[in-house]
Each structure stands twice: as structure tokens, then as C-alpha cells.
Nucleic acid binder design. Structure first.
Lengths: 219, 219
DNA sequence: GTTTAAATTTAGACAAATCTAAAAAATATT
DNA sequence: AATATTTTTTAGATTTGTCTAAATTTAAAC
């Protein structure tokens, strides 16, 4: 039930790669973990012995249910800590990843469930990625780009697809972050810019380039 | 500037032992760390090489300034995390130590300084031990047992000298914890029990046995 | 002041996680 | 199909932190 930080990093990374492309290769995993293929092979054998992974030499590998469950718990921790760092300690998106990489290995399940409650059960992390609940379930909501949202519909920001500091600066200035409630009040066909109402009072304008990078979901 | 979790545990424990008895022995350190004397000797050599420790074979050892500075930073982290766990995540005193043992090894100084600020710069942890500030300074205040406090003087609870769960239960019931403001309204010479005013309104009674275990300082 | 006991250190081994360099298997190329 | 290339795995070494058992030093007892 408790794994080393290194094993947890492997589990998490395999989970990510395997949900993107269904074929995960030794080399790809090595690259993602900034390590060497030989080290990956070594670890795969250990994870297989611990029954977290299905693995046949030269043939490929993937997480079994046990492995996936473990990976999801690590992802939950990572994203909850990121949320905490941004929401409570006032860090920017771009600063929190490394810290969360350490915090995600804190073992106590009770701690993370209390943190979840303290943060009021957030559904997405500051980058907009979904946070699984304490049973490992992701609540999936249909996301769409802000520029596709109909006029006068209230939506909530769930993700930003471009995570640059230039974007962060712009959004901070305009008071937009994950969880912000918005309503599109006007669309200008000339340049596809939008006028938004934020939190029921402020009116701001954003450009087409920004509007297509902001993903939202129903309120 | 960054040390392994294991080294940090050694530094912290040497610091504690050396501030209690000025002679720290290999065996005492081994016992405190639940390890063996041989392992301690091995580590002492490494800490000496890293110039954190003054060490002469068979003669003894102690932290130098560098080592003390490092130890204090770890103690700061441990105590701030304990405070966070109790104050924000609603854990009891008796539950937080193990979790803090892990959290204290999270490396970011910026994180811990932000946490300090978020918690409003607490001066003592939930066990009443002082929390050093971001420069490593302990703010020392004169403490005295509650039974020694003069009538009608407002004081603040700074420590409980007996950390049992029976004591915790009693104090939780009576709404007393670290930081609580108190005023002794009456002393009964018959049994040395006290009547206290808590937070300017509630009047409660505590026994002599309890009153001698509660340390307070000026408000 | 020897001898005995206790504390400390060394020597050698082990587990986890990593690496380099070489071997083996699977793919791709002609 | 035979050869070349890429991918993956093995073999053996390294680092960190630990251990046991034996040796050494210091302290205590007689």
C-alpha cells in the first residue's frame, strides 16, 4: 500500500502516458522520467513483482487495476497540493509543479482527505486538470472553449490550454482563474473579441487569441 | 544547502539532544533515531565531511554553526506543519507528529515562508514548542505554570507539559489549547483548584493536577 | 594497575535505485 | 530473406543508507 517516491513517480508517469497513447514504450518512459532505458527496465521488473504492472519482456507493459488505483491516488495528491499552493499560499501556476512533485509523496491518506475538505473539494487543479475524489473517481464535465459559449450563459473556467507566464500575467490582471464564473455578454464578429461579465459585476474584454485558450464548463 | 531526509533527521536529533544534555553519545543518538550505533558512526563521518559537525573518533561530536542552522530550519518546518495540521486541518495534537516527520523534508524555503505567513506567524506549535522565524531566531518568552499565575492577570497558554490523550480530551472539553487567553479569577486553597475566565466570558474550573501541567506566558 | 565491561568504530555485506557498456530481440531496409 | 538499425534487456559497477559481527578504544571495577 505504500511505495517509494521513485516507484510512485513511475506509476504516475506510466498512467499519464498510457492514457494518452495506448502504447507506452520503455524509451518514452525513460525520456519522461529523465532517466535511462536500462533503469526503466529494472523498475518494470520490480513493479511487476509487486503486481502493479503487466509486463512481458520485449513485448510491452501496462498498469493493472492495482497500479492504476495507486497512480490515481498520487495524481490526486499532486493536484490537491497544487490547488492549496495557489489558492491558500498565493503561488502562481507556473511555480507550483516542483513543490507538488515533493508533496505528492506524503503518505497519509487521512491528511489528503482532510486537505480536500479544507479546500472545499475542488474539482480541478490550477492548471484545469481534474482532481479525482477520495475514491479515485474523476468527475468528468464537458469542457468547451470560451469562444464557443453562447451569449448570456453562466459558465465556470475549468482550464487554460496555454500555460505560459505571459498568459498567466494577462489573466491575473483581468482577474480570471480556474473556478471564476463568467458570462459572455457580447461577441464582436469583426475581431472575434468578447465582452465578459465576471462575478456578476465587472465587465472586461478579451481577444480571440485568449478566448480560444480558456476552457469552461457549465456552472 | 539541501540534504537527504536521513541526514536531516540526524541533524534535527543531534540538535535536540545537544540542547538537553551537552554531551551527546553515539548510543543515545542511535536510540533516538531507532537505528544502530554503527549506522550513527557512518553518518557522523559523512556529516563531518560536509562540514556540519565537529567530530573526533571516540571523543564525541557536536553540530557546528552550519549544522545548527540547518537543524533549526528543519525544526521550523516540522512545527509549522504541525500547526497547520492542527489549526487548519483539525487534527489533534497526538496525531500530527508522524505526518510532520514527512512534511519537514519538503525542501522549498519559499513554501515554508508562505505557509508561515498564511498561518499568521505562530510563535509556538500545538505542543507549545517555540517556532523559529524565517531567520532561525526563537522568540523566547518566560513561561510559568498556571498555578503560579497571580489573580486577574491575563495570560496565554504556551505549552502543556503532559501530552497524553487523556489530558488532550480534558482540555478539548474545556476549550483550552495553545494560544488560548486565560485569566485566573479565583484560587481555592482547600484543593488548589482554580476558576478561570476563558476568552473574556466563559468561567471554568480546573484541578491542581491540571493547573501544574499548563504553562502560560504574558499576553 | 590489571582485568572486565561498556561504548565506539571498522570491516564486510545488503537493498534500492541508478548508471554505462555490451548483448539480445524486434523492426526496418534493401 | 539477409542485413542493418533501433529498442530493449542484461551484466556489472556505483551511491546512499543501513545492518551484523568483530575489533578497538575508553571507562569502570576490583
Amino acid at each position: 500500500m505504500k511505495y517509494s517516491a521513485s516507484k510512485e513517480n513511475y506509476l504516475k508517469e506510466i498512467f499519464h502516458l498510457q492514457s494518452q497513447q495506448n502504447m507506452v514504450t520503455t524509451n518514452a518512459l525513460a525520456a519522461a522520467l529523465h532517466t535511462k532505458a536500462a533503469s526503466v527496465t529494472d523498475m518494470l521488473k520490480k513493479l511487476k513483482t509487486q503486481k502493479l504492472l503487466l509486463y512481458e519482456k520485449y513485448k510491452g507493459f501496462k498498469l493493472n487495476n492495482e497500479g492504476k488505483k495507486a497512480a490515481v491516488q498520487i495524481i490526486r495528491k499532486h493536484r490537491l497540493w497544487e490547488f492549496f499552493l495557489v489558492e491558500k499560499l498565493q503561488f502562481g501556476w507556473d511555480e507550483v509543479h516542483e513543490m507538488a512533485e515533493e508533496l505528492e509523496h506524503i503518505s497519509s491518506k487521512k491528511l489528503i482527505d482532510r486537505l480536500d475538505s479544507f479546500l472545499d473539494f475542488p474539482k480541478t487543479d490550477p492548471h484545469g486538470d481534474p482532481i479525482p475524489d477520495c475514491n479515485g473517481k474523476f468527475s468528468e464535465r464537458r469542457q468547451l472553449a470560451l469562444r464557443e459559449v453562447p451569449i448570456n450563459k453562466i459558465v465556470q473556467v475549468s482550464a487554460i490550454t496555454e500555460q505560459t507566464s505571459a498568459m498567466l500575467e494577462l489573466l491575473q490582471h483581468k482577474n480570471i482563474r480556474i473556478g471564476t464564473k463568467l458570462e459572455v455578454k457580447k461577441k464582436f464578429p469583426f475581431d472575434n473579441s468578447l465582452e465578459l461579465k465576471i462575478k456578476n459585476h465587472l465587465i472586461i474584454t478579451i481577444s480571440e487569441q485568449v478566448a480560444e485558450k480558456i476552457l469552461v464548463h457549465d456552472d
